[in-house]
Computed example of a mutant assay.
Amino acid sequence: MFLRLLSALLLGLSLFGPLVAEDRKPVIVCSTTQVADFARQVVGDRMIVKSVLAAGQDPHLYEKKPGDAQLVSTADLCLENGWHLEGNDWMRKLAEQSGRPLVTCVEGCKSLKVPGVEQAMHDPHAWFSCTNAATYVRNIRDAVIKIDPEHAEEYRSRAALYLDELRTLHSWILREINKIPVEQRVLVTSHDAFNYFCQAYGLKAATPVGWSTGNEIGAGITPERRQETIDSILQHKVKAIFVETSVNPTMVREIAREAHVEIGGELYSDSMGAEGTAGETYIGMMRENVITIVQALR
């Protein structure tokens, strides 16, 4: 009797084992919160999406933690922004050390050159143009189809719907920015994260800090940049300037006092909002940024 029960149990386990393996969801590990949101829009519940960065963290300054290598080692696919947004290419190094496949989502975007740098460096903040965000989504769609071709039509359908939403968002932003008088469309923020946004939607960018908050080439504040920012505020009679959720606000607050302008609010820049906030998704982040900018500058 015991042997029969044992045999039945072993048979059940042998049948159940493959089902567990087959039902295991692929894991995607992303460097930033924006990339992770794009991935979730494409894969739905079909895959597990994780982000190395949490809401509010700065990818330029991020330093690898002991658990990051373990997290990346579980990935079937790794996604990074690229163009050195991840300071010292920390995501690429994690993927290479773990032997995990890596896709650079910014590839194929029309790039802007990092301001004030003689070398040919791409500004990595490309997602601030909805057109570029669509390129991220297409790159992610193609990457997940390669690792799970059986569900390719699902991924194409989700991506198609989200691309429609991005086109709608793009049109809405243009309409909202048009509420600001042309001469007042100057966006002053902590660092050069909004150049794509300004080019796409008709604003002028002015910042005291370069493209990165880290120590890369072309990054950091200089007295000249600081004075240029103040001069731009005074010249254009800017009504308000903005701090960023992922950057220390001290310097911007000092400039606001010196130039006698208000802080117009916080903008999501290199990171989205925490779960449960209005900016927890890419579309939510962009929507809240635009509302904040328009209300402060119009």
Rank of each mutant, 00 (worst) to 15 (best):
54 A>C: 06
54 A>Q: 15
54 A>F: 06
54 A>I: 02
54 A>H: 11
54 A>N: 14
54 A>W: 03
54 A>S: 15
55 A>G: 13
55 A>M: 10
56 G>I: 01
56 G>D: 04
56 G>E: 10
56 G>Q: 04
58 D>H: 06
58 D>M: 00
58 D>T: 00
59 P>L: 10
59 P>K: 15
59 P>N: 14
60 H>S: 10
60 H>R: 02
60 H>K: 02
60 H>T: 10
60 H>Q: 04
60 H>G: 07
60 H>E: 14
60 H>D: 09
61 L>I: 13
61 L>P: 03
61 L>V: 13
61 L>Y: 00
62 Y>Q: 00
62 Y>E: 08
62 Y>L: 07
63 E>V: 15
63 E>I: 12
63 E>K: 12
63 E>T: 14
63 E>Y: 12
64 K>Q: 14
64 K>V: 15
64 K>P: 13
65 K>Y: 04
65 K>N: 12
65 K>S: 07
66 P>V: 04
66 P>W: 07
66 P>G: 07
66 P>A: 08
66 P>D: 12
67 G>D: 15
67 G>E: 13
68 D>N: 09
68 D>W: 05
69 A>F: 11
69 A>R: 01
69 A>T: 15
69 A>M: 04
69 A>I: 15
69 A>W: 04
69 A>Y: 04
70 Q>K: 10
70 Q>M: 05
71 L>I: 07
72 V>I: 15
72 V>N: 06
72 V>P: 02
72 V>H: 03
72 V>Q: 06
72 V>C: 01
73 S>R: 01
73 S>H: 00
73 S>Y: 01
73 S>W: 00
74 T>P: 12
74 T>K: 14
74 T>W: 05
74 T>C: 06
74 T>D: 09
74 T>A: 04
75 A>T: 08
75 A>F: 03
75 A>W: 12
76 D>G: 03
76 D>F: 07
77 L>F: 08
77 L>Y: 08
77 L>H: 06
77 L>T: 09
78 C>N: 08
78 C>I: 12
78 C>K: 13
78 C>S: 14
78 C>L: 09
78 C>D: 07
78 C>Y: 10
79 L>D: 05
79 L>Y: 13
79 L>V: 06
79 L>W: 14
80 E>I: 14
81 N>A: 08
81 N>M: 11
82 G>R: 05
83 W>S: 05
83 W>Q: 04
83 W>D: 10
83 W>P: 07
83 W>F: 10
83 W>H: 02
84 H>G: 02
84 H>S: 00
84 H>L: 02
85 L>E: 10
85 L>V: 01
85 L>I: 02
86 E>C: 08
86 E>Y: 01
87 G>I: 12
87 G>C: 03
88 N>P: 00
88 N>A: 11
89 D>S: 10
89 D>N: 11
90 W>I: 10
90 W>K: 05
91 M>K: 13
91 M>C: 09
91 M>G: 06
